[in-house]
Design a protein around this nucleic acid. Sequence first.
DNA 1: CAGTGGTCTAGACCACCTC
DNA 2: AGGTGGTCTAGACCACTGA
Lengths: 232, 232
Amino acid sequence: MKSPVYMIIVEDIREKINSGKLKPGDDIPSETALCNEYATSRMTVRKGLAILANDGYIYSIPGKGYYVKKPEYNKYTIYYDEMNNLINNVDNTKLLGVDIVMPHDELAHSLQISKKKKVIMIRRLFYTDGEPMAYDVKYLIYQKGMPIVEKEIKEATFPEMISKNMSLFAMKKELMIYARTPEEKTKKMLNIYDDLSLLVVEQKLYDSKDKPMGLGITYFRGDYIKLHGISQ
Amino acid sequence: MKSPVYMIIVEDIREKINSGKLKPGDDIPSETALCNEYATSRMTVRKGLAILANDGYIYSIPGKGYYVKKPEYNKYTIYYDEMNNLINNVDNTKLLGVDIVMPHDELAHSLQISKKKKVIMIRRLFYTDGEPMAYDVKYLIYQKGMPIVEKEIKEATFPEMISKNMSLFAMKKELMIYARTPEEKTKKMLNIYDDLSLLVVEQKLYDSKDKPMGLGITYFRGDYIKLHGISQ
DNA sequence: CAGTGGTCTAGACCACCTC
DNA sequence: AGGTGGTCTAGACCACTGA
């Protein structure tokens, strides 16, 4: 159960920052000073400091030294996937249609394409326990290898649809989350009879050169979804 | 503009993964093999591999080797702060009240306290351009040094309220995001006359020992807020 | 057993900052 | 000029995995 030296350095300094003994802007002892303090080599000290820097506790200025960083107190990590969320998972899907359409103004602008370039529109309904919980629309710029098999379309999440042609690593993604009151058409599809709100999640996918590849919009029944985020 | 050797190694391997030449599960050449390939020392190779591991591209198994990782295609980072969002920033606030209350069942459970322990309830209204855009309630477990000056309460975000007593680093935070239809009382406060939805964000703060310190609930007018998340 | 990654050393040279 | 961090070397010993 013996911790390596670099880990002891990490824990010592992290504890001083967490407890407030070291405050944002304060400076950390120099590498050579820490070498002496822990009777170890410079590379070992540097390994510890690199970990603290990576975790957002400290930063370094070449020629000057290491300093305590101001924490990003408003940063959260959220795991989103239109098929799974905190309350319910999608256990069944219904494909409403796959169509080739001309993009409307807003969509053409969002995908950074000409209004004359056709896009694929995939519409689905998601179910939990037999109840419709979300209406889902995807707009894809067509590329070779795009999913055309119904089974592939029905069960796939947005990144999976596109990953047929490219590595999931190279894809950049963006989320937009907001609340909306459903239109009559949507209320009907989702079996909503009273005034229920929708949680809308827009998902935009980009290739490694920041060119948009597709836009997905999922309209969740407000009582069927909660998104969950955690700090660091 | 010459890149250090370890960076060249990082870029080479990352490119192979992004382009799909290396797929999840594939193995990376061993450290000694890379030492030969790049005519460099083991520590330099290890520095490059550490960066790739940290970025989620690869992982290592001691005694075996390095492998390409399956990407977390559903991970997003979101910067949330009740005072600022993509559409509007809060430019004015109104303090509706600061009260000492007995927690109701749900709140006592959420904060993991007895129903007999009193909590501080802070209620505020947020404005943009003179329009009320959100109703905000915070429940705080009282501790020495809690904000009692009205100015401090009015302008502070949730982490800032608590950071009077502790380092922001030590605080763990949790978000819950969902959509709700407003009650009559809320509609009145937010000047809502038609059927507008609310985006509700619950924020829960924990100390470094995972003990809840407070719960904040912000009810945003659906037309005044969009949350934004990005991958990696 | 040979090969792998994990930890660590005791040097080195460089670019940068401050005095 | 002396101190700082950034890069790099050529070794070492260890624990672990697989044949």
